[in-house]
């Protein structure tokens, strides 16, 4: 019982899934809403991935949709063109979906390595420019490759992703990022973010740590790409444009850069917001843009900057714990946060 109190996430996380699942079964949430929830899941994975680079390591990747595109197209190639997963029995489909997802992740990670290796050595904002360029180059390459549908787009990808699998991958991603941040690897990255010269003289091989984080991030982005491809069943190169990359940046910075919980909530809220504002027709994105500027102006650390859900049990960073596991835990963890605003 005591263990359960400390680890309430073991109950709460499945509970969240069961609730959404039951709402779907009983037609309280229609397919459209479920689709939005699934896309929000994909966006959460992407924002987590971006947080590893921009939040934890302090490097600026502004073309992350490129890695998502690689993941999406590689996994779609795998499940549609190389193996025709649509014609398989359900168990095999699941296996091939997972394989396709991993293939997508590895494909993206390879590109992450090729991009990160030469650029992360350089001091300054070159990663931003090169990732921006990478996203657009990938898009151009896809546009002229007939094997993946070129500029017409790739249709007929089997619908293998489900609410369940997206939920599983969101949870896995969150825990991977948590484990990363709360380790010597993550602390090395945080040190680089805070002061690269000092990190170097503290024995941290800065380029190695940066490349590791970047490749991990690209891998996760590739997984998000696979989820995306197998949810929407249609891929078009222009979907992964620079605008898509800025969406993830917006989720991350509005949510709270550096905070895992912030990136979860930012991605979820801002994916849902335009749908909630749908009644305002063409004004919804005006409000969205205005809101973003207001958030950045009045809360530069983001909505949940410097805060984490208590259930993540993050130790690094002196974070204020918020969240639902406090309900079950009599003692709340009190972390002295002398001045969380001044710290970031």
């Amino acid at each position: 019982m005591n263990w359960l109190r400390k680890n309430s996430e073991v109950i709460i996380l499945p509970l969240i899934y069961v609730v959404i699942f039951l709402l779907q079964k009983n037609k309280i949430l229609n397919n459209y809403v479920i689709q939005i929830i699934m896309l929000a899941g994909v966006n959460i994975i992407m924002t987590q991935s971006l947080n590893l680079v921009n939040g934890m390591t302090g490097q600026n990747s502004i073309g992350h949709a490129g890695f998502m595109a690689v993941g999406a197209y590689v996994s779609a190639l795998f499940s549609k063109i190389i193996f025709n997963a649509a014609a398989m029995p359900p168990t095999m489909q699941t296996i091939f979906f997972l394989l396709a997802t991993i293939a997508g992740g590895i494909g993206a990670a390879i590109f992450g390595f090729l991009i990160g290796m030469p650029t992360l050595r350089l001091k300054g904002d070159y990663l931003a420019i090169v990732t921006l360029g990478f996203g657009e180059v990938i898009r151009s390459i896809i546009r002229i490759t007939p094997a993946v549908g070129a500029a017409r787009g790739l249709t007929g990808i089997p619908k293998l992703a489900s609410l369940f699998w997206i939920f599983v991958f969101v949870v896995i991603t969150i825990y991977i990022c948590r484990n990363y941040m709360d380790s010597a690897y993550g602390r090395g990255c945080l040190a680089i973010r805070d002061n690269e010269v000092a990190a170097d003289t503290m024995g941290i091989n800065t380029s190695k740590y940066k490349v590791q984080a970047f490749v991990t991030s690209a891998f996760i982005a590739g997984i998000a790409g696979s989820m995306y491809a197998h949810t929407l069943r249609y891929l078009h190169p222009d979907v992964f444009s620079y605008t898509k990359s800025t969406d993830f940046l917006v989720y991350l910075y509005a949510g709270g850069v550096g905070s895992i919980s912030g990136s979860i909530l930012g991605a979820f809220i801002l994916t849902a917001l335009p749908e909630v504002l749908r009644f305002m027709n063409e004004w919804r994105l005006v409000i969205y843009g205005g809101l973003l500027v207001i958030i950045i102006l009045f809360r530069p650390v983001g909505m949940f900057g410097g805060k984490e859900f208590a259930f993540l049990k993050l130790k690094t960073g002196g974070i204020q714990h918020i969240g639902f596991s406090n309900l079950f835990q009599r003692k709340t963890k009190k972390t002295i946060v002398a001045n969380e605003e001044a710290s970031r």
Binding site: N54, N60, I62, T246, L249, V250, Y253, A254, V257, E282, W283, L285, V286, Y288, G289, G290, L291, L292, V293, I296, L297, P300
Partner: peptide, 27 residues
């Protein structure tokens, strides 16, 4: 207001401005 903040903040603000103006003009 973001001048003394990390540069990425003003870049995000710029993305917000861009979203706002484009959609404002469209609206």
């Amino acid at each position: 207001p973001l001048r003394n903040r990390p540069k990425i903040s003003s870049m995000i603000a710029a993305i917000g401005v861009s979203l706002f103006t484009q959609n404002f003009f469209r609206a």
